[in-house]
Nucleic acid binder design. Structure first.
Lengths: 209, 209
DNA sequence: AATTAGTTGTTATTTATTTCACATTTGTTT
DNA sequence: AAACAAATGTGAAATAAATAACAACTAATT
């Protein structure tokens, strides 16, 4: 079974979240164009993504919502749980901790870290905060495979190196510092300043027309 | 002069930020492979992007840093300032306000908004917080062209509609709710849950190999 | 029972983005 | 001054992603 394109993975993640909502509303079936409408993309795009899952609709009824959620999960989720740590409990880290916590049963936020010793032992959304010095120990004891970096720019590289050294498998980097990690570590970077500059550029362009 | 590809805009934004650092360190020239190394991309990619700017190196010395910053600015920035408002002063909004504030001279954070009346009049990184009810008024008086949405999921659509109604030109959406805006409004969406699920997927995949 | 209409799955096409490959230019070395 | 080396700029090729186009299937309608 082939690895899915990154863009498809992104959309599947979004499909699933919408479908879970629909399930709550007791929607049993959904057409590609309906799902497309919700996500604001094209119906072909939806069908193509689902085709990559080998998932078919029930003729003239659409895709069965519950089963589709199940199939997306089979493809996206690890069978066992994946444990996540967030490093840096400033505003951004705190926001992420509450955003991400509990949102997916197979993705558990199991540890938070901060350099500030005062935060030691504190709980945010029910997850314990450890001092940075215990990073290695906790990663091992809690089997953390994914690290989310939300520390100040200056410590980003150091934190990434520590994570890698302690066997982390994936990093989600929210600092503006591009990281350099071994190829066996999955890396996803997100730079908020770049996003803002991008919007600003297209605003400017659209006004010049 | 053609509109640049979105990906190129993203990289130009990053080049510029690194170049500004280099300038502080009195670096006068930089080779494509050096800049590439810093951003963790290929040298060809850098040269191609700069080619789109019509910007040439000084033979065997590399690209003049200061002039390159200037040229990127000419292309990315609006001549006049672009004013930005952040709507939703929870942890995420607060983090963004301090991240983004002052980072680019031509992109000014001029207003913050929150539903909570207690925050009215408060200042975060020197920017004033207004109650949500004054959105329209402030957008007009401060000539806000870009809105950053960091409110809870449930209010995202309402806020977006308000922004659009008040003539906003660009939206950066940090909620998980896909927004539907008229085509004359530039929209950039960023979903942190999707990013985390994406890393998790590629971690899983890499372990299966 | 035949026709219409809605929806899918998939191949083919188009568009966007990245990478390759290399001729070109000129500083440096012999 | 010839040979070499370091980089660039760019056409051509490759890869990735999105869209179009349409045959096929079947529920509903006539």
């Amino acid at each position: 079974m082939d690895t899915l394109p990154g863009k498809t993975v992104e959309r599947l993640s979004q499909y699933r979240r919408r479908l879970l909502n629909l399930l709550d509303d007791n929607v049993e079936y959904i057409f590609s164009h309906e799902l497309a409408e919700i996500i604001q993309i094209s119906a072909v795009q939806v069908r193509r993504d689902l085709m990559l899952l080998g998932f078919s609709s029930v003729h003239r009824k659409g895709y069965p919502v519950e089963m589709l959620i199940e199939v997306i999960g089979q493809r996206l989720d690890d069978e066992k749980e994946q444990n996540v740590a967030i490093i840096g409990m400033g505003n951004l880290g705190t926001a992420l901790a509450s955003y991400l916590n509990g949102i997916r049963p197979k993705l558990k936020i199991v540890a938070l870290f901060d350099i500030d010793k005062k935060k030691e032992g504190m709980e945010i959304v029910g997850v314990k905060c450890y001092p940075f010095s215990e990073l290695g120990k906790v990663i091992k004891s809690k089997r953390v495979s994914i690290g989310v970096i939300t520390v100040p720019q200056t410590s980003a590289k150091k934190v990434a190196a520590q994570l890698v050294k302690n066997g982390i498998k994936g990093i989600l980097n929210f600092t503006h510092i591009p990281l350099n990690v071994p190829s066996n570590v999955s890396l996803e970077e997100y730079d908020m300043i770049t996003s803002l500059e991008k919007v600003a550029y297209f605003v400017k362009e659209s006004q010049e027309k």
